[in-house]
Design a protein around this nucleic acid. Sequence first.
DNA 1: GCTTGAATCAAACGTTCGTTTGAATTCTAC
DNA 2: GTAGAATTCAAACGAACGTTTGATTCAAGC
Lengths: 219, 219
Amino acid sequence: MPDPISDPIDTKQSLLDAAEALIAERGVAGASLRAITTRAGTNLAAANYHFGSKKALARAVIARHLRPINAERLRLLDAAEDEADDRGPDLESLVNIFVGPVVRFGREMPDRGRHFAQICGRAMTQPDPMLRESLLGELAEAIQRFTKAFARALPELSPEELLWRMQFMVGAMAHTIAGSQMIEAIHGDTLDTRDLDGIVERMVRFLCGGLAAPMEGSR
Amino acid sequence: MPDPISDPIDTKQSLLDAAEALIAERGVAGASLRAITTRAGTNLAAANYHFGSKKALARAVIARHLRPINAERLRLLDAAEDEADDRGPDLESLVNIFVGPVVRFGREMPDRGRHFAQICGRAMTQPDPMLRESLLGELAEAIQRFTKAFARALPELSPEELLWRMQFMVGAMAHTIAGSQMIEAIHGDTLDTRDLDGIVERMVRFLCGGLAAPMEGSR
DNA sequence: GCTTGAATCAAACGTTCGTTTGAATTCTAC
DNA sequence: GTAGAATTCAAACGAACGTTTGATTCAAGC
């Protein structure tokens, strides 16, 4: 007799939750369908019935939260551009809008949010092109919009220099949310790596300084 | 009759080269021992004979170049601290020493260097703790030395703030050398992602700006 | 009450993986 | 030249993987 309380209200959702947690913990290759379906309280066939394949399941895990997060980003960008004068939103606002929603997403859903952020941070440099491109596809529009906005806020930068600085920004962000294993391994006892608001503040400060760095070594 | 020219002069070295290229391309999990040994012109047993296991082979791939690179970093740091006045080396010198040897390593050995950098960039956030910790072990001394040096060059930062900023710096660096798939996928036709010297220059500018960013929003 | 389609399940399939084995070969030193 | 260690090789092993199959359960719709 199955437990009527924790009954699988929605098998699909349970599979996504289990996959999210296990992929975050062990990576895509390390999270077997058997482990995922066991954790979800179902079986192998169910995963293939609902998603068709393991890769499709992984893609669904990414898309589930990334889509609303990116929508939120673009919504905030729209609002900021409406409010700003004709020079556009200032740098700090843009960085906050770009970085904040992703990192802060972990606050509303502490576990799932953190897992999701880890997966996305890793997916950017993942060898599997399928997964990487599915992530980039979700991000493409946001990247284009933000590139234009940053170009307006940083008119003294050449287009090339701006693209590279955005690359560095994404790297700092992705690496930090992918898990701060390094900083935890070395100073885990003295630092609070769960104070997401504080981390966002620090990251925004750093990124603004980097993005606005002068081109010539005028020290 | 085996080709006397490309004969396996050193099976161990061939295995390291093949593993390096394939792990960079497909990741540790995606690079099978069969693919590695075939590329190296030998067979499965040879890999286990020389390295004992696949994980040990992966660790050897990381250690082979990382150890001399870190030695070079520390050597440059020593030299800079000898030359500097009692305030220690300035920020730009430190960033150059920290970032330069890793990225520029790709110039001397174009293919192997790039592959190795990709592997290291990925290993930092890799789910496999074995590989991650072996990388962190190699880096531990360098990180401690550079933390002290940066603290001297940036006396206005609290220890916490400095650690986070170094975390962001490592992230920007790791993500960039892990492969600029994102920037290439979006603007691959207009940017030269192989001009390593130029990238180092740009990265140093960005990182100096970020590391030295003011703590208060004094705009 | 029977039918239909979606959903779940245990079981098995075929493949690929890392590792091991034992014989063959090559190299080295006496 | 030969003994002995080091190295290479083809073949096989057992485990784990993603996927498929066919039977079974369940909830509506007529």
